[in-house]
Amino acid sequence: MKRNTIVIGITFVILATFAWAGWANWMYRKQAAEHALASASRAELIPVTPGDVPDGGASLTGKPAPNFTLEDLSGKKVSLSSFKGKPLLINFWATWCGPCKIETPWLVEIQNEYGPKGLQIIGISTEGDDLKPDDKEGWAHDKTAIAKFVKEEHMQYTVLINGDSLATEYGGLDAMPTSVYVDKDGKVVAMQLGISSKEDMEAHIRKAMGEGQ
């Protein structure tokens, strides 16, 4: 009788342990699934490799660079077509963007080195604030910040403003920096999202200049 009681007791403990383990496991997996579902709908910057563009933006590689006309800091209108026949690096950047701040000195060096060979860098400020044309205060604020950045970083290449207006044509421009490499025929040879290295940029530039082909 006593032995039976012990066996029943042990069996009950084992069963209870199994039941508890099952319940705990179910709860854990339920929470994990809910978390995964929540994460799936949240923002994500897509890891990129040189030449890639995000799913949301159409790849421009192999296509003619979309033309545009933007103003520089002095208010002068500048069109992409005015650089016809030149290999270009169109660099979309923003004053609040840390990686842009890191790569700007590389761009200055690249312009100094490859400029005499024909390369032209066009830096286009893309602040992401979608200012309306009549928002004078907003534009003044943006221009002050951009001018300060340009001066501090010694950006001696062409700098234009209001890159946000080119988002549709240039693959979304969801994140900064975005670099578009254009050959002398006006065709995009590479598009790079995010910062990589000066060496990567130079490799794309040589491609745009038709070197090493």
């Binding site: 923002a43 840390g98 990686p99 999202l193």
Partner: peptide, 10 residues
């Protein structure tokens, strides 16, 4: 927000 190589607008 940013990740290790690129930044989203404010």
């Amino acid at each position: 927000a940013c990740d290790q190589t690129q930044c989203l607008p404010p």
